[in-house]
Design a protein around this nucleic acid. Structure first.
Length: 422
RNA sequence: GGAGAGAUGGCCGAGUGGUCGAAGGCGUACGCCUGGAGAGCGUAUGACGAGCAAAACUCGUCCGUGGGUUCAAAUCCCACUCUCUCCGCCA
C-alpha cells in the first residue's frame, strides 16, 4: 500500500511512477478524487458527532442536577442529530471502503535506484560470476536427461496431476533434498532464523503481502474455506508479523523452505518442456524486516547471501537489476539472479531479491518503535535463496559429464554421501 | 464435530450504561541521586484519522470483528472470528 498522504501531497511522484511502470493513470485519478470526497465527508460527519457528544455530556449534567425537563429537551435534540450522524456515517464509510479497494490495486512506487525502462530488455546486468563451461560434448537438456535416466518422470506426474508437474526419483529426489538442506544450513549459519510455516493461508494473508486482490487468477484457491496455497514462503514469512509492533533489534532475518504453488495462468506457451516452469516447486526463501534507513544496504546483503549459494555450488550466474517496467507489483527495487543453463544457452532466473520498502508493512500493519519513540513501518525484503527445482536443473546441466552422469557439487557431497549420480 | 472459558494500551491487568481513552503494575524516556552503574525517588508516556503552514493545539474514531438497543456502550443484546481447557475422531 502506498501512503495516501504521499499520494495527496505529491501526486506527480505517483504519476511518474505509474508512467515508469508502463501503467495508466486512471487508478490514481480515481484515488485522488475519492480521497478528496472522503475528507469532505469526514469533516461534515465529525462536526455533527462533536455536537452530539457535547449535548450528551450536557444531558449527563442535567440529569445529575435533577433538571429533568432540560434533560428531556436535550434528549429530543440529540435524537435528531444522532439519526443525521447515522446517515452521514454510512455515506462516509462507503467512500472509505471504495478508496481502500482502489488503494489495494495501486502498485508500489519504484525506488530512484531502479533503472527506468519499458520492459525486460531494459534490465541492467550488474555483475557476472563464473564462466559458462564449454564442454566438448553436447550437454543433454534436463528434459532429456531426466526421462532417459528414469530420474525425472514427467509422464506419471501428468497422470496424477496434469501438465507442469514433476516426479523426481532416486538420486535426484535425494539431490533435491540435499540442496534444500544445504541452503537452509548455509543461511542459518549467517544468522537467519529458520522457520517452518503453513503452506495454506487465509485470503487476508495474501492481501497483506500484495498477491491479492490483483493476482487472484495466479493463485490456487481452496474453495470451501476460501484459503490459498502459497505461491512463495514470502507470504507467510512476512505476514507472520502482521498487526504487530516488532520488538527487539532490527533487522530480523528469516529463512524458510516451502513448496510453492502457481497456476501460471497466461504463460501457456512458455517453457513447456522440462521442469523450469511447474505448478508446484520447492524454494528456500529469505526475508528481512529492517529499519527504513537501512533497507537498501539490506537488499545488497540479502542478494549477496542468495548469490553465495550459487558461488558455493560453483554455478555461473549474473545479477540483473530489473527496470521500472519489469519489477513486481509490490517491489521498489529488484535484483534477479540468473543462472547459466546450457539447454537454453542463456541465463535463466533462479532468484528474485526485492526491497518492497514499507509497501507490505502498510498492508499488514507491521511497525517498530524507533529511537525517537515513534511507531514507524518497517521495510520488508524478500528473496529466493534459491528456487530449488531450478537449482537442480542447473546442476544437471552444468555438472554433466561426457558419460551422461552428473558430478555432485562438492558442497553437496556430505549431504548425498556420494560423488556421482545418474 | 460436541461442551465450557476467555479476547481491554508495547506487555500484564482492573473496570457491568454518562468527565473512561480507560485504575494499578511492568516496560520505555527524561530528571534527581552516584566516581560510574544499579537500586531508590520524581515526572512523562496509547494508536489511527481530519483540520492547520506547522503543532506541544482542536475535533473525531478505536477496549477481538461486524451489526443492534440508547440522547449516550469497554460496559446491555445478536452474529461471527480467534485463543485456551475437556470430550470425540485422526496423521
Amino acid at each position: 500500500m502506498v501512503d495516501i498522504r504521499l499520494i495527496r501531497e505529491n501526486p506527480e511522484l505517483v504519476r511518474k511512477a505509474l508512467e515508469n511502470r508502463q501503467m495508466g493513470q486512471e487508478l490514481l485519478e480515481e484515488i485522488l478524487q475519492l480521497d478528496a470526497q472522503r475528507r469532505e465527508a469526514l469533516q461534515i460527519v465529525e462536526q455533527k458527532k462533536a455536537e452530539r457528544n457535547s449535548i450528551s455530556s450536557e444531558i449527563a449534567r442535567a440529569k445529575a442536577s435533577k433538571d429533568n425537563s432540560r434533560a428531556q429537551s436535550l434528549m429530543d435534540r440529540a435524537k435528531e442529530i444522532s439519526s443525521e450522524v447515522k446517515e452521514l456515517d454510512v455515506r462516509t464509510s462507503q467512500i472509505e471502503e471504495e478508496l481502500r479497494q482502489k488503494m489495494l490495486y495501486l502498485p508500489n512506487i519504484p525506488s530512484e535506484k531502479t533503472p527506468v525502462g519499458r520492459s525486460e530488455s531494459d534490465n541492467i546486468v550488474v555483475r557476472t560470476w563464473g564462466e559458462p563451461g564449454k564442454p566438448a560434448f553436447e550437454v543433454k537438456p534436463h528434459w532429456d536427461f531426466g526421462p532417459e535416466t528414469g530420474l525425472i518422470d514427467f509422464e506419471r506426474a501428468a497422470k496424477l496431476s496434469g501438465a507442469r508437474f514433476v516426479i523426481l526419483r532416486k538420486d535426484l529426489a535425494r539431490l533435491e533434498r540435499a540442496i534444500m538442506n544445504f541452503m537452509l544450513d548455509l543461511h542459518h549459519s549467517k544468522g537467519y532464523e529458520e522457520v517452518a510455516l503453513p503452506f495454506m493461508v487465509k485470503r487476508e494473508t495474501m492481501l497483506a503481502t500484495g498477491q491479492l486482490p490483483k493476482f487472484e487468477e495466479e493463485a490456487y484457491r481452496i474453495e470451501p474455506d476460501d484459503m490459498f496455497m502459497i505461491p512463495t514462503a514470502e507470504v507467510p514469512l512476512v505476514a507472520q508479523h502482521g498487526e504487530e509492533i516488532i520488538d527487539g533489534e532490527l533487522p530480523r532475518k528469516y529463512t524458510a523452505y516451502s513448496a510453492c504453488f502457481r497456476r501460471e495462468a497466461g504463460s501457456y506457451g512458455k517453457d513447456v518442456r522440462g521442469m523450469i516452469r511447474v505448478h508446484q516447486f520447492d524454494k528456500v526463501e529469505l526475508v528481512w524486516f529492517t529499519h527504513p534507513d537501512f533497507s537498501y544496504d539490506a537488499l545488497e546483503q540479502l542478494t549477496a547471501d542468495a548469490e553465495d549459494v550459487l558461488r558455493k555450488l560453483k554455478l555461473p550466474y549474473r545479477v540483473v537489476a530489473l527496470c521500472t517496467g519489469d519489477i513486481g507489483f509490490a517491489s521498489a527495487k529488484t535484483y534477479d539472479l540468473e543462472v547459466w543453463l546450457p539447454s537454453y544457452n542463456t541465463y535463466r532466473e533462479i532468484s528474485s531479491c526485492s526491497n518492497v520498502e514499507d509497501f507490505q508493512a502498510r498492508r499488514a500493519n507491521i511497525r517498530f518503535r524507533d529511537i525517537d519513540n515513534k511507531l514507524k513501518f518497517v521495510h520488508c525484503l524478500n528473496g529466493s535463496g534459491l528456487a530449488v527445482g531450478r537449482t537442480l536443473v542447473a546442476i544437471i546441466e552444468n555438472y554433466q559429464r561426457e558419460d551422461g552422469r552428473i558430478d555432485v557439487p562438492e558442497v553437496l557431497v556430505p549431504y548425498m554421501g556420494q560423488e556421482v549420480i545418474g
